[in-house]
Nucleic acid binder design. Sequence first.
DNA 1: GCCAACGTTGGC
DNA 2: GCCAACGTTGGC
Length: 141
Amino acid sequence: MAYWLIKSEPDEFSWDDLVATKARGEPWSGVRNHQAKNNLMAMKVGDRAFFYHSKTGLEIVGIAEVKRTAYPDPMAPSSSPWMACDFIAIEPLPSPVPLKVIKKDPALAEMVLVKNARLSVQPVTDEEWAHICELGAPTET
DNA sequence: GCCAACGTTGGC
DNA sequence: GCCAACGTTGGC
């Protein structure tokens, strides 16, 4: 299984909005960048993705899953190459992981989120995935 | 609201 | 095919 990270401005479409779609899921459309599009096309059903709030949230808030692999973006002209995927919400991170924590963490210095902040659909390595899941786990007392 | 970083466009 | 100009994204 592969891991990804998808970004959204919470003002446009938030984690709560994704949760509200329940099992129906949400078409991830509107991607207009070829690198991001290529990542969408590489996704398989069951792949997991961190849901990141950009601009006003600046943290990873939850885990989503690919429900439907890439298909032509319904919001784009029919002759265009743009693609969409469908995602469903799996679970929130008990403790959201802020960008500034990610930036400070040497284990995450190579993350695409750090290296190429503007890419809206990006791959995440197994190591990065596991590490962020730990950071997002409930705090033990 | 500002500006840096990045991608895209278009003139040459 | 290069590169300057421009538009957009996203962190601060």
